[in-house]
Every structure is written in C-alpha cells, then in structure tokens.
Amino acid sequence: MRKISVDKLEAGMVLAKPLLRGTMVILGEGTALTETWISRIEDMETDSVFIEGAAEQAIPQEEALAQLDRRFQHVLDQPHMMALKKIVKEHIEGLYGG
C-alpha cells in the first residue's frame, strides 16, 4: 500500500485502510474510489489516504536491494547497523508491493 495526497486521487484507486472521521468509518477498506467519493474526501479536509498498490519505482527491485548491500558494506560487523539494514530492506520491499 502507499500513502498519497488527496489531490492525486483517481477513480479506480482502492482504499488500503478505512477512511475515518473520529472513530466512525466513512469508507471501508477495499472501497474502490469513484469521482463522487473523491469529492467527499476532498470536502473532509483530509490531507492523504492509503491506497492499494505500489508506486512505480525507477529501478528494479533486485537492483535496489543490490545497491542497499553496497551502501552497507562498511558496517557489516555492527549489529545495530545490521538491524537498521533489515528494516530498510523491508521498507524497500514494501515499495515494490512486497
């Protein structure tokens, strides 16, 4: 899933998380947005929503992960840096829909 700003919403996008007003669910998870829903969301003064699907990435995932390995090559012996690397790796995989 990815977070996008309300002004970039397009009909057909699917909500990855429910849209809430306080604790009330206005639109449920999995709702496919129509132009009408998008105007309602704009009226609500929400800044952004979570929608399904990964953003297009400039390079393939394998290349992104190979670059990640290269960047971390000088800190392989440090546990806290490897813990960080793991989190970054998962973050990168998430960008590709993983």
Partner: peptide
C-alpha cells in the same frame, strides 16, 4: 544522516552508510 544514506536518497560525496 545515516538513515538518509541507508535509504540511498541523494548523494553526499560517498554512497556509504556511516556507522551510527
């Protein structure tokens, strides 16, 4: 600084993640 290098955003003179 380390986090931004870890994510590979931009370029600060070398591509390496510095030890925190």
């Amino acid at each position: 600084d380390s986090f931004v290098r870890a994510k590979g955003v931009g370029f600060a003179g070398d591509p390496f993640v510095s030890t925190i």
